[in-house]
Design a protein around this nucleic acid. Structure first.
Lengths: 347, 347
DNA sequence: GTGAAAGCGCTAACAT
DNA sequence: ATGTTAGCGCTTTCAC
């Protein structure tokens, strides 16, 4: 009997181990569950089994265990919140809280839920195991996708409840902010303050929705002033990137008197760069952010925000998910949620 | 045959539906997977099955599907990052990133990983399904526990890889910051600046580690000055709570010239209250935070931090988890990670 | 166009 | 002190 460890052709199961040691599968199972005391297995046997488990690199099959362990009288609902690995967890954590709340409300004797956040590498959603054969989730919320992921979703109909957040896909239930509306409102606020030399701070990697925000901003400004705003491109989404980009903007351009930063991480960096350059907010430069940062109200000065109305989005998402898991609704649908506008001191 | 929907005693399975409609389980399965076209099922049959699925409130059993679907040649490792529902996701997301990285590095033809964040209600970890019978995870990282959860863990030995973060439990692998060390260093920094009227800002609900931080701070100040610092208690952990607590502190006490806030959310609120009261940082009040906020460097002025060294903790956690999943290590162990100190302008 | 049967890996009840 | 057996719910050949 070969004792090779990893990379074995045949999978290592309790049966393999049992054979290897010369005992029965149940003995192995007992040891694995630390129940050998109550079963009074011989210590020598236990040791041999333990050794084989290690040597053969045994990995328990949780699907099998679960199938065995579950009380047949209760239905188990597995809900996944799928998000790209590289994206911030802010919206995700709000979604999670709402989903959990809804799940708790529906939990009962014959009905259990488990909610988990699962990450995929941006652009590689299609590689996530169990998505296509429905062997992982009863329902999923998908967010923070990249164009490759959207392409995958557009050509795939998953045979279970799916809600897509922030993207338009004809074959799915989609919940998203009204495209373009956000950028337009941001522009109107800055123009309304009298700002005329406008700039928009964007990350180099744009999602569909950030791109649309920026475009709508540019279009609105152009239409009203005849001059397109400067696009300041930051390498990433974090404050450091924002500060860098704005510093280089100030050193190579005449600067601006109104800035729209398409994420609050960038706004925060922009604040630093603006202040460091001796300019004041909002007197010299008015700033509008998006409201995706939980502390926008604690920026100095507090940040005016025009962005997606996250609460409303999350509410829609959760409602749709549960309706679909209950077979109460099946058809694809696009739900547009109007933006939220919070006026504060920065503009 | 009764057609009652929810709350049925017997679980609804493909078999139930098959019986109800008068077809075979395989027909039902085919419809559920949207494969009725290629199987050329009669449309009428499909409709009847669809209707029964809805009427009976069928919920697919993902464990069974997965058991069936998995290629026997590949080992599937399910890793869970378990965190309390009410806690912020900041550290968790860093852990996730590192775990995912480690998993990706180990993924190969016969070896797949899936990592997910699962939440439990604070204090109710024991109620999380599948934890005890090992039917959900091959390995877990547990964090943000409350005393009730710790009590549960202390009396439970899970038969798979477990790493506990931030708590000491004799029967588990624990990774945590050096207790007391953090509060002591924070005190030393403030005292070293010449501050003498010290205060510590804490949330009303203290975790074991925040409590120890605050205690060590108090003890150090008392030992060196003979006067205990004022404890300012905030209702929660967010900036709003911090600001409130500090405002009421300023209105009822003489104030302080050195503040240690045991979380950066509180620091941020404290900043606002301090500035609003006309005091300057660090001239009138020096502030030390913890460094648990990703933007501490972008506070105005940047926040001096003394806190757990998250990178080092995360690294240890991930190393331990994989060693344990590989059976390379089994015994409980306590790993203390020294604090990180970052001096910035606020103190 | 539809059904019957096998088996994924595991564990608990029931034998020895 | 250890082995045998049945079956959790599902899908996929294969047979009709």
């Amino acid at each position: 009997m070969r004792a090779m460890a990893r990379g074995e052709k045949r999978p290592v199961t309790v049966h393999t181990i049992a054979q290897h040691v010369g005992v029965s599968p149940s003995a192995v199972s007992t040891v694995l569950a630390n129940r050998h005391e109550e079963r009074r297995l011989a210590p020598a046997t236990v040791d041999k089994i333990r050794k084989a488990v290690r040597d053969l690199g045994y990995v328990p099959n949780v699907a099998a265990r679960r199938l065995r362990a579950n009380d047949p009288e209760v239905h188990h609902h597995d809900i996944g919140i799928l998000t790209s690995f590289e994206a911030p967890l802010f919206l995700v954590s709000r979604v999670l809280r709402q989903v959990q709340r809804a799940a708790d409300a529906r939990t009962g004797p014959g009905r259990r839920f488990s909610v988990s956040i699962d990450m995929f590498h941006a652009g590689r959603l299609r590689e996530m195991g169990g998505l296509l054969n429905a062997s992982r989730f009863n329902g999923v919320i998908i967010t923070n996708t990249l164009p490759e992921d959207d392409a995958f979703l557009a050509e795939t109909t998953l045979p279970y409840a799916v809600v897509v957040v922030g993207r338009r896909l004809a074959n799915h239930c989609c919940v998203l902010d009204a495209p373009g509306e956000i950028g337009r409102r941001a522009a109107e606020i800055l123009l309304g303050r009298g700002a005329r030399r406008l700039a928009v701070l964007v990350p180099s990697l744009l999602t569909q929705s950030t791109a649309e925000r920026a475009e709508a901003f540019v279009a609105t400004v152009l239409a009203q002033t005849g001059v397109a705003p400067v696009r300041v491109v930051a390498p990433g989404l974090n404050p450091v990137s924002g500060a860098e980009a704005m510093r280089s903007h100030f050193s190579t351009h005449r600067g601006c008197d109104g800035l729209y930063a398409v994420s609050d991480g960038l706004s925060l960096g922009a604040y630093q760069a603006i202040k460091d350059s001796g300019r004041r907010i909002p007197k010299d430069v008015a700033v509008v952010g998006v409201g995706d940062h939980e502390h926008a109200d604690f920026f100095d000065p507090p940040l005016t925000c025009v962005g997606p109305s996250n609460d409303a989005i999350v509410e829609q998402v959760v409602t749709q998910l549960f309706q679909r898991m209950n077979h109460r609704r099946v058809n694809p649908v696009e739900i547009f949620v109007p933006p939220s506008v919070v006026m504060r001191a920065s503009a």
